[in-house]
Simulated assay, not measured.
Amino acid sequence: MEGARVWKRDDFKTEEELLAQIQADIDAIPKTDLIVEDVGYDPVQNPKQDFMTDRETDLVSQHLKRTIELLVDAVFNEAKTAAKLAGSTEEYLNEPLKVRWVEAYFPWTAPSWEIEVWWKGEWLECCGCGDVQKLVLDNSRLGNSIAWAFGIGLDRIAMLLFGIPDIRLFWSLDKRFINQFKQNRISIFKPYSKYPGSVRDISFWLPKDNEGQYLKLHENDLMEIVRENAGDLVESVKLVDEFTHPNTGKHSQTYRVNYQSMDRNITNDEVNLMNEETREELVQKYGVQLR
């Protein structure tokens, strides 16, 4: 993702009016609680451009940095909130956000910088930016203007926001990945196994309670039993079929259990044993009649 801000000199009668407008734009940027390590620019290694005055360079650069800091503050605080909602208690979630500016080189801006964020114990490079080169403005038919621009990798930011460990997952068509995310909502990625799962169906007739009503079982009830027998080797439990017999009136349910390990292949013998233990416990705990 790229962004830019342009001030056209022709829109102002004097340079002082232009500078006053840029200063007003800076003052209008909301303040953040970021801890900022700022840096200027080296006149030799990272020089300003001759077509901009010193004051123009200073103000445009200030506006650039305050804008990027506001963006970083919003993005990383959203990431903290999402992690807390997901149940994380890591120390970094309670630490103030720190950023630092580092001088850099890009062919389309001068002076140029990168902003880095202190995140989970290390400095992370977020985006490159700087005051736009005169040639770029001329080629954009903005010759008599001054501007700044930035570029940021959305995939990198998304990885931080959603806790995604591998960039290759963005090209995955696996529904276990795709279905974890909804529009306008930040949720932390839940890892899933790269090893194949093994599916078993459990079908049974439900018993009646003391009032003659058929027992009501839910996926959570079955999941509790499966977890007791299979632990972390159960990936999901879903109700896949439910019907009432037209002649007897008996009520039936079928649940599909997916057994899957995060770190190894599990054998059919293991799955059969866990599934049989679950079936037996269903009979003992709820009095169902297995089909």
Rank of each mutant, 00 (worst) to 15 (best):
G3I: 00
R5A: 12
W7V: 08
F12N: 07
T14F: 02
E16Y: 08
A20R: 08
I22C: 04
Q23Y: 07
T32L: 07
L34F: 10
E37V: 01
E37N: 09
D38L: 03
V39C: 06
Y41T: 01
P47E: 06
T57P: 03
Q62F: 05
I68P: 01
E69I: 08
L71Y: 08
V72R: 04
D73E: 08
L85D: 14
Y92M: 04
K98F: 03
K98V: 13
V99T: 12
E103Q: 11
S112G: 09
W113K: 00
V117Q: 00
G121Q: 04
E125N: 07
D131L: 10
V132G: 01
L135T: 10
L135M: 15
N144K: 09
W148F: 12
I152F: 01
D155R: 08
D166H: 08
I167T: 15
F177D: 03
F177S: 05
F204A: 05
P207Q: 12
Q213T: 14
Q213A: 13
K216Q: 08
K216F: 13
D221V: 00
I225F: 09
E235Y: 15
T244A: 13
K250S: 05
T254S: 13
T254C: 11
Y255L: 02
N258P: 04
Y259P: 00
Y259G: 01
N265R: 04
T267Q: 14
D269Q: 15
N272R: 15
N275M: 12
E276M: 11
E280A: 15
E281F: 03
K285H: 09
G287F: 03
V288I: 07
Q289L: 11
